[in-house]
Amino acid sequence: TEVDLHLGDITIKLKDVSEEIVKRAKELFKNGWSAEFVKKWIEEAVK
């Protein structure tokens, strides 16, 4: 499945990412993480 994760003005296309990771990524962004950091976190999380 593909998900578009909207973080501010940046959209990250996610492939084969669990709902849990998407939820967590949104929380991290809301908590002040930059979109770049969230993207890196996701990449690490799906390895």
Rank of each mutant, 00 (worst) to 15 (best):
A35G: 08
K23I: 12
V38W: 01
F37Q: 15
K15S: 11
D16C: 07
D4N: 13
L5D: 02
N31H: 11
K13S: 13
I10H: 09
E44H: 10
K40V: 11
K39R: 15
I21K: 01
K15G: 09
A35W: 08
G32S: 02
L14S: 01
I21V: 08
E36H: 07
G8N: 04
L7Q: 01
E36F: 05
V17D: 01
I10R: 03
A25H: 00
I21M: 07
I21F: 06
E20I: 09
V3D: 07
I42Y: 02
A45C: 06
G32E: 01
E20R: 09
V3T: 11
T1H: 13
E19N: 10
I10Q: 10
I12V: 08
D16Y: 08
E27P: 00
A25S: 02
K39Y: 07
F29L: 07
V3R: 07
A45I: 10
S18W: 05
E36V: 08
A45T: 13
E2Y: 14
I42A: 03
V22L: 12
K40A: 15
E44M: 05
V46M: 13
L28K: 03
K47N: 12
K30N: 14
L14K: 01
G8Y: 03
I21E: 01
W33P: 00
I42H: 00
G32K: 02
D4M: 14
S34F: 05
E20H: 10
E20C: 12
H6N: 09
K39A: 12
I42R: 00
A35T: 07
W41R: 00
F37N: 14
L5P: 02
L28D: 00
T1M: 14
E19A: 10
W41E: 00
K23H: 11
W41L: 02
K13Q: 08
I12Y: 04
V3N: 08
G8M: 03
K23N: 14
K39H: 08
G32M: 02
K47M: 15
W41Y: 11
A45N: 10
S34I: 06
W41I: 02
T1F: 13
K23E: 15
K15P: 06
I42Q: 00
D9Q: 07
G8V: 03
K47D: 08
E2F: 14
G8Q: 03
D9F: 06
V46G: 07
A25N: 00
V17L: 06
K40P: 00
A25F: 03
D4L: 15
A45E: 14
I12A: 02
V46R: 06
L14E: 02
A25C: 03
I10S: 06
V22T: 05
K13M: 13
E44D: 12
E27G: 03
D16F: 07
W33C: 12
E43M: 13
L7H: 02
T11L: 12
W33V: 09
A35M: 06
K26H: 11
S18L: 06
K15E: 09
G8K: 04
N31Q: 13
I10T: 12
R24Q: 14
L7V: 04
W33D: 04
S34Y: 03
V17R: 01
L14T: 03
V17W: 04
K13T: 14
I12P: 01
I12F: 04
N31G: 11
R24C: 14
E27D: 10
V3P: 05
V46I: 14
I42P: 00
V17F: 04
A45M: 15
A25R: 00
N31D: 14
E2W: 15
L7W: 06
R24I: 11
A45H: 08
L14H: 03
E27Q: 12
K26G: 07
E2V: 12
W41Q: 00
N31T: 10
K26N: 11
L7R: 01
L28N: 02
W33H: 15
E36D: 11
K13E: 08
V38P: 00
L28H: 06
K47A: 15
K40H: 11
S18V: 05
K23Q: 13
G8W: 04
A35P: 09
K26E: 13
T1R: 12
G8P: 02
F37R: 15
V22I: 15
S34E: 06
E27T: 06
I21D: 02
T1V: 13
K15I: 14
H6F: 10
G8R: 03
K15A: 09
V3G: 08
A35N: 03
L28Q: 02
F37G: 13
N31W: 10
A25D: 00
E20T: 10
T11W: 09
D4R: 05
D9S: 09
V38C: 07
D16A: 05
K30G: 11
A45S: 08
W33N: 09
E36Y: 05
K13P: 12
D4K: 08
T11C: 08
E36L: 08
S34N: 11
I42F: 03
T1P: 11
E19Q: 09
K13N: 11
F37P: 01
I12H: 03
D4E: 15
E20M: 07
D9M: 12
V38L: 06
G32N: 03
T1E: 14
L7Y: 03
F29P: 00
E19W: 13
V46W: 05
V46Q: 09
T1G: 13
E43I: 11
K40F: 09
I12T: 02
E19V: 10
L28A: 03
W41M: 03
D9N: 11
V46E: 04
H6Y: 09
E43F: 08
E44P: 00
G8T: 03
L7T: 01
E43T: 08
I21A: 02
E36S: 09
E36N: 07
K15Y: 14
V3Q: 10
L14A: 03
K23L: 14
K39M: 15
R24T: 13
K47W: 04
L5Q: 02
I42S: 00
D4S: 12
N31I: 10
F29R: 01
A45R: 06
I21L: 11
T1S: 13
S18Y: 04
G32Y: 02
K26M: 15
A35K: 04
D9A: 10
G32D: 01
K26R: 11
E43L: 09
E27F: 07
V38A: 01
E27W: 11
V17Q: 02
V46C: 12
A45G: 03
S18H: 08
W41G: 00
K23D: 14
K39D: 03
K40R: 10
V38H: 00
K15F: 14
I42D: 00
F37W: 14
K40Q: 15
W33G: 06
I10F: 13
E43N: 07
L14Y: 05
L28V: 01
D16E: 09
E36C: 07
E2C: 11
V17E: 01
